[in-house]
Amino acid sequence: MPANISLYTVNSIIFLDNDGKRLLAKYYKPPHGEADPDSLAGQDKKQATFEANLFQKTQKVNGDIILFENQIVVYKEYSDVIIYLTGGLNENEALLYTTLQGLIGALDIVLKSSIDKKSIQENYDMVSLAVDETADDGIILETDPAVIASRVTKAPTDDVNIKIDLSEKGLFNAFQFAKSKVSERLQQGF
């Protein structure tokens, strides 16, 4: 069995809820060039059956790892979410698991230690970013939880800019802004 010498390592990252329903699923294939014919990327029907069968096999079995349909699947189960990461049959199991732990550790930070269905849905933007910072179309970007989390920005605080910056610079900015607006109006002559 030849080892995988390409950098394309992760086949998919999948989040399912406790009914086996999909919360997030990313099936990877190289953005340019040929995809592996066995890849599930772009195969909606096969993905659905794959997820259903996988869920059945892994639910309430805290095994961390399983070989399933010619893939290595590492996973972690929470109260109402299971997070899976899959790779090729010849992949290094420990490497995949470290990647999964990186992602999960990062989620733990950005979701403030509550990895569950509700907070994943509420913070879908940050979850998407965390997944995106873990693997880029199958290439592992980072495995350190703190680093992955530090690259995930929080949502902007508010649209209406009522945040008052009371520092000297802030006041100066406000003054400058007002000044420019006023002069603008004046120039337009009302």
Binding site: G105, K112, V147, A149, S150, T153
Partner: peptide, 13 residues
């Protein structure tokens, strides 16, 4: 690493 307030027990490399 200022993005989040708290990184749990993780080291900041």
């Amino acid at each position: 690493f200022l993005t989040h307030e708290y990184y749990g027990a993780n080291k900041l490399p």
